[in-house]
Design a protein around this nucleic acid. Structure first.
Ligand SMILES: [Zn+2]
Length: 312
DNA sequence: CGACTTTGACCTGCGC
DNA sequence: GCGCAGGTCAAAGTCG
């Protein structure tokens, strides 16, 4: 289960201490807590990068360019704690009032989710940059044949404190499966973007020790705009995230921390650029010693202070 | 009636 | 090779 690499999106609009404690409290995942503390301490908050951007793959560019990470092999993990506080209708609007608002967050590692059972030391997986080719052989029939290599797309994990599973993120999803998760009393649901031509998938599950926390993992990037019906509804652009601080842990190749202040949620609209188009070569991979991000200057350079992206 | 959820079967990778 | 666990399919059911 443990994946190759997990990035963390650290969302903590409040205080440092809180952030730290929250993280600790929220991460019972035994085993890899060591590097966690370290990472957290060195975490350095920064500017903003819209959530939309991330979802649209902008983050890929940023990451890759800035840290030389491979979009195909990296996974971002963020923790967004949405409290049921009657905050402004930042996200409320719409059909599902269930969508929470305020957020606090923490980082987490899905890789260490093993916990107590048979958590064997994960062997460091070798990251091979897979080609951008999306030879998606449609598995129409039942007997799926030759799948060859499983195409693993970049994944973004978000931990959201919410009572409801169905978090609105601006897109339409169709549930296509549900499975029980080992070591967890809560099931995991599988969703797929209903828009045809869009193969984005989403995985939702509750934290095994924090029933109020929902872990949403996005896979792939949307190549279309947000459905008008849901436009300006929720998270379409409510999150913003700053730069990332790459970090090398004991077990993990690297970890990224990002802060996503939801204060400035501005709808970025749908930037449906083909991320697949700009598949940047990670030539800087061997130079991953930028622990201390100079500033978001770099990112800023790559991406406007605040998602200023627009559709061509 | 269309869009979506439910649910068990099925497929596949991986460890033993 | 077998069994487990994660992931997916698709038929049937539900909802608006
Ligand atoms: Zn989509």
């Amino acid at each position: 289960m443990s994946e190759e690499f997990t990035g963390f999106y650290y969302h903590q609009p409040f205080h440092d201490d809180l952030r730290r404690s929250t993280a600790a409290a929220n991460f019972p995942y035994s085993g890899s807590t060591d590097q966690f503390s370290d990472s957290l301490q060195m975490f350095d908050p920064s500017p903003h990068l819209s959530f939309s951007e991330i979802l649209h793959g902008e983050y890929n560019n940023a990451l890759s360019d800035a840290f030389g990470l491979s979009p195909s092999t990296s996974e971002a993990f963020s923790f967004v704690k949405e409290e049921q506080v009657p905050v402004m209708e930042a996200v409320g609007g719409g059909e599902t009032p269930a969508t929470p608002n305020s957020s606090i967050s923490t980082s987490s590692t899905e890789a260490a989710a093993g916990g107590e059972d048979c958590k064997k030391s994960k062997t460091e997986m070798k990251e091979t940059l897979e080609d951008a080719e999306d030879d998606t052989s449609k598995k129409e029939g039942k007997a799926k044949k030759k799948g060859g290599k499983k195409q693993k797309q970049p994944r973004f994990a978000f931990m959201t404190k919410s009572e409801v599973d169905h978090l609105e993120d601006g897109y339409r999803w169709r549930k296509y499966g549900q499975k029980a998760v080992k070591n967890s009393p809560y099931p995991r649901s599988y969703y797929r973007c209903t828009t045809q031509k869009c193969a984005v998938k989403k995985r939702v599950e509750r934290s095994f020790q924090d029933p109020s926390t929902v872990i949403t993992t996005y896979e792939g990037q949307h190549n279309h705009h947000v459905p008008p019906t849901l436009r300006g509804n929720v998270a379409a652009g409510m999150f913003a995230s700053p730069p990332l601080i790459p970090f090398e842990g004991s077990s993990f190749p690297q970890e990224l921390f990002v802060q996503m202040p939801q204060d400035l949620y501005s709808y970025g609209g749908g930037s449906a650029s083909n991320v697949y188009d700009h598949q940047q070569p990670l030539g800087t991979l061997h130079h991953q010693q930028f622990h201390q991000f100079p500033d978001y200057g770099l990112l800023q350079d790559i991406i406007p202070p605040v998602f200023t992206r627009q559709e061509p």
